[in-house]
Design a protein around this nucleic acid. Structure first.
Lengths: 167, 167
DNA sequence: GATTCTATGTCAGAATACTGACATGAGTCA
DNA sequence: TGACTCATGTCAGTATTCTGACATAGAATC
């Protein structure tokens, strides 16, 4: 998938510039739109992560699930769904596949209520180690043009945006 | 869909705190991970936009397509795909549906090469006007906790991240 | 002018995530 | 105790997007 956004000068690919004098409308100005920029950033990140994860036979959600379980063993299916920003139905499908593949284990019977706490198997931990290293290079690459303070600012502002949209 | 991420204190929902003393691992620390924060922000934004767009009978990509075409009439299918961060195959499907619904028009024959320049119909413009107003409230809400300078910083840092991951 | 490369539009099939719905277990409150 | 509310796990069906592949038009190279 291409990554180029629509910019005032045209896309980065070879489009024969159907030259438009932009901005002159009631709607959103794409360049000023934080939402658009955010979507673009997320898209670029998605592509970059997919590029390193796919050769390992994993999807991004697959990796995120491993990462979450390593940091917090015993998370439930619903917990994992929230943590990876998908529905619990989607996570259920994924989790079952991962269980089948021996990456994750869950007790046959729920210890309490209906919750089945999931844990990484030895194989799961090994697969995560590989993936984690790959993903870390992407994370570092993404930060490479920001100094420590700028990264801190970015995190802070991102959190503010999330808060504003959440409450 | 729930929006809560996995935070040190547990999710925002009522999970009986399977208390884990976090961070102590080789992998990524979720809180320090820009990537995770970015994904969360994008997810929250997606949900918020979907919430206002769905009642209007539109998806986010649908809206994005309208917005792009209004600002730059004559964009091709591939241009629109790049601008909305989906594949050109996906955009092709959407565009055809929008054409069928009378929101977009394309010439029967390509004026040059294989490119079919798309334009908004009168109905398309009207639908966009409604959607645009709704989306603007989301954009404003997202910015509500950031002053002008902070918004500028956020945009700048986001662009830096995109650049770093793109080149 | 012929060849090569790149971009486009499109068809077909697969993967992924979503919505809707249901029953169950736990907590709340009268 | 019983009614009510909420969260969970899961089944079923749908929607959206993706990957792979193909033919074609224009640009670039020689």
């Amino acid at each position: 998938m291409s990554q180029s956004a629509i910019t005032p000068g045209g896309t980065s690919s070879s489009d024969a510039d159907r030259g438009e004098t932009n901005s002159e409308r009631a709607g959103l100005d794409l360049d000023a739109s934080l939402g658009y920029l955010l979507k673009q950033a997320a898209s670029v990140l998605h592509t970059a992560m997919d590029a390193v994860l796919r050769p390992l036979g994993m999807t991004i959600t697959h990796y995120a699930c491993l990462e979450l379980l390593a940091q917090r063993p015993g998370l439930s299916n619903s917990d994992l769904a929230r943590g990876t920003f998908v529905t619990r139905q989607s996570m259920n499908t994924l989790l079952r596949a991962m269980e089948r593949d021996g990456l994750v284990s869950r007790p046959a019977q729920p210890p309490v209520g209906r919750i089945l706490p999931a844990e990484l198997t030895e194989l799961g931990h090994r697969q995560l180690a590989t993936a984690s290293a790959a993903v870390k290079t992407v994370e570092l690459r993404m930060r490479s043009k920001l100094d420590a303070e700028q990264q801190s600012e970015l995190r802070h502002h991102l959190r503010s945006s999330i808060d504003a949209l959440t409450e």
